[in-house]
């Protein structure tokens, strides 16, 4: 069992959990992820390692409540335990060789770019960050990013925080103003990553995206997380999760990720219905 040390609400439906998992923390590097099961009957679901404390042996994850598993997790409190927590999985992302990086996050994507921002700050290469969200309540880790980013731009759909508009609008204007980046890393919903890649391609800037494919084992054993990159089949769990965004077949990824939507929704309704009947 893996104990939840602290739980903190970051935004509507987003929680940060600090979990006691010394073995995972021990070799974890930015860009890697874990797979957890909430209880003995739970589904295996992946989350990015947002931060670690190797001395006390904890791993921090940011989780958006979406369906049955994340709902079950959200019902737990500090002091409770979850059944399984395996990692670090996937490859670490190495942005250290670039001198001027722009990180873009949509929604929960903050979880993925935060360790990158922190790491690059640590080696004296602070980054620019664009955070996108539907509204003010959904902007995550703003304060944390402020202490690590060179410039932080917030974009909301309704203008309730930062500027009104999409992250791609900010990206475009930054590039048009003559800002030079030698690498863009974009993490968020598939459609957002696809839109970012379309812009950076036009400007000829290499772009890394993090693919949140549907996973089971996370070790290359099921092939469920496969996607097409540059015409080749790749496994997000062992070949990724990060890929060259200009080579990813986003349309295929979008249809694969929505595959279980109906089943998941029905399950969530049952879960909520069961509670309501109690």
């Amino acid at each position: 069992m893996f104990k939840i040390i602290t739980k903190r609400s970051l935004a509507a439906n987003v929680n940060e959990y600090v979990i006691e998992a010394a073995a995972v923390a021990h070799n974890a590097r930015p860009g890697q992820f874990i797979i957890l099961r909430v209880d003995e009957d739970g589904e295996r679901v992946p989350f990015t390692i947002c931060d670690t404390n190797k001395i006390i042996g904890t791993v921090t994850i940011l989780v958006q409540t979406l369906g049955a598993t994340t709902e079950k997790l959200a019902r737990l409190q500090a002091g409770d335990s979850i059944a399984n927590f395996v990692g670090p999985l996937g490859n670490a992302t190495d942005l250290e060789g670039y001198s001027n990086v722009l990180l873009i996050a949509g929604g929960i994507g903050s979880a993925v770019i935060f360790p990158q921002a922190k790491n690059l700050f640590g080696i004296g290469k602070p980054v620019d960050v664009i955070l996108g969200a539907r509204n003010k309540e959904l902007v995550m880790y703003k304060r944390e990013f402020m202490s690590y980013a060179k410039n932080l731009y917030v974009m909301t759909d309704d203008g309730s925080d930062g500027e009104k508009g999409f992250v791609t609008q900010k990206l475009k204007s930054l590039l048009e103003e003559g800002n030079k980046y030698d690498m863009v890393m974009a993490v968020g919903p598939l459609v957002m990553m696809r839109a970012v890649c379309a812009v950076t391609k036009e400007f000829g800037i290499p772009t890394t995206v993090s693919m949140n494919s549907i996973m089971v084992d996370g070790t290359g054993m099921c092939g469920g997380c496969r996607l097409t990159v540059g015409g080749e089949t790749k496994y997000a769990c062992v070949d990724g999760p990060e890929f060259d965004g200009h080579l990813v077949d986003f349309d295929e990824a979008i249809s694969r990720s929505s595959f279980y939507k109906e089943k998941e929704q029905a399950h969530l309704c049952r879960l909520r219905g069961l509670e309501a009947n109690k």
Partner: peptide
Amino acid sequence: IFDTVIGKTYS
């Protein structure tokens, strides 16, 4: 010991 991938969790 479950949930341990050798090559990842420990080398």
